[in-house]
């Protein structure tokens, strides 16, 4: 394995670290899974910061869902291979550079800037507060409830 290969993988990982974390917790996180994958491919240790973040999130998830799915799975399928096969042998410097370029385009908002969308869609005529209210909820992590008056307003007017 050449040093350029490892360096490109390192570049990808440091780029992925700058990706925004999910505001609402899902079953899987794109950012973390890709960091794990490219660390594995480049044989680099996973950054400490990421590991801490992941541990924190897992704690939160355990509070949220009482049943630990992974534990259950391990109990049922005892001999199941826990680690994913990342097919390291398929990668070379050229492919890693391609992956880096795409990830960079996504991080730089290339297509959102190229195909700009204006107020017409972002503050829709029929439902002007829709996205503002959605983002308010998302920024609170999607866990808190709205007040009962807001809920009634939605039920009566049909507007979100």
């Amino acid at each position: 394995m050449t040093s350029t290969f490892t360096n490109t993988a390192k570049k990808i990982v440091s780029l992925l670290e700058k990706y925004p974390a999910d505001k609402v917790k899902h079953y899987a996180s794109y950012k973390f899974s890709q960091i794990e994958r490219f660390c594995n491919i480049g044989s680099i240790p996973i950054p400490k910061k990421i590991l801490e973040e992941q541990a924190l999130e897992q704690k939160k998830q355990q509070k949220l869902i009482k049943i630990d799915v992974k534990k259950l799975k391990r109990m049922i399928f005892a001999d199941e291979n826990a680690t994913t096969n990342y097919k390291k042998e398929l990668f070379d410097v050229d492919i890693l550079n391609q992956q880096y370029k795409s990830l960079k385009n996504i991080a730089d908002n290339k297509w959102a800037d190229y195909y700009k969308v204006d107020k017409k869609l972002l503050e829709p005529k029929g439902n002007p507060n829709y996205y503002a209210r959605l983002m308010k909820d998302v920024n609170r992590g999607g866990q808190e409830r709205e007040s009962i008056f807001d809920a009634f307003r939605t039920i009566i007017t049909g507007k979100y």
Partner: peptide, 25 residues
């Protein structure tokens, strides 16, 4: 959420979770 936050990385994560079935590879 991706449209409102006007961010490609959020959209990419959403597409990865839904269309690509959260495929790690």
């Amino acid at each position: 959420e991706a449209l409102a936050s006007n961010s490609d990385s959020v959209l990419a994560a959403a597409l990865w979770r839904n269309v690509f079935n959260g495929d790690k590879n």
